[in-house]
Amino acid sequence: MSVHLCGTAKRGMLTLEVDFSVGSEIVAITGLNGVGKTTLLRLLGGLISLDSGKLTVNDSVYDDALASQSFVPAHRRGLGMVFQDNVLMPFLSAVDNVAYPLTNRAVDKSVARKRAHDAMSDHGIGNLGAMMPHQLSGGQQQRVGLVRALIDIPRLVLLDEPFAALDADARRDVRVWLRTQLGQLPGSKFVVTHDSQDVEQLCDREITLVQQPNQQSGLRSVATIIR
């Protein structure tokens, strides 16, 4: 169980350079704003593709700039993903949001809903099931989003600032809960964060993105493992 990523990706002015291998660990992705942390996550998730280089997950090629047909699209990567602004489907209740990844695998709807409800109850938010996203606070939405990301036993977990909407107390609770949940998953887990406590208490490794001085126009960010 490992992720090898070596290559570059361009997003507008920014060129991201990455070269790392991680195992079945929880990896923090840190760096200043605008340095490309979300871009790195999107690269791992298959929402954008590499401009050069190669991404291998658990010994299978997910993306290879030299062989575009090898690209594995997001929906076949077995992701557990939380986006930065935590997008719950606005037209689905909380429990249906959590059940959505299961129904995509043709799991029977009532079974999926039951499992979603159980997963929410385990996390202590079973009472929120019938609520619509707009009725939930930012923190509640974030909890629902986390439960949803992990319900289908993802092979690759990608969390973009998963605690941003939580206050300090809730953050501590959710961090402990997440640590346990992620520990049970076999694949690599990536967490974008600005919080040094997240890095220390949740993560085993840390990849940091640093902007490099560049002689040409545009920005160049380099990702390196620092821990």
Partner: peptide, 27 residues
């Protein structure tokens, strides 16, 4: 239609066809 919802659906394992029927069409 905000493309983030479709991306999010893709990240949850929805194929292009399913994204169209369950997310895009809905929005």
């Amino acid at each position: 239609v905000d493309p983030r919802f479709e991306e999010s659906a893709a990240a949850m394992g929805a194929s292009g066809m399913r994204r169209f029927w369950t997310v895009t069409l809905r929005l």
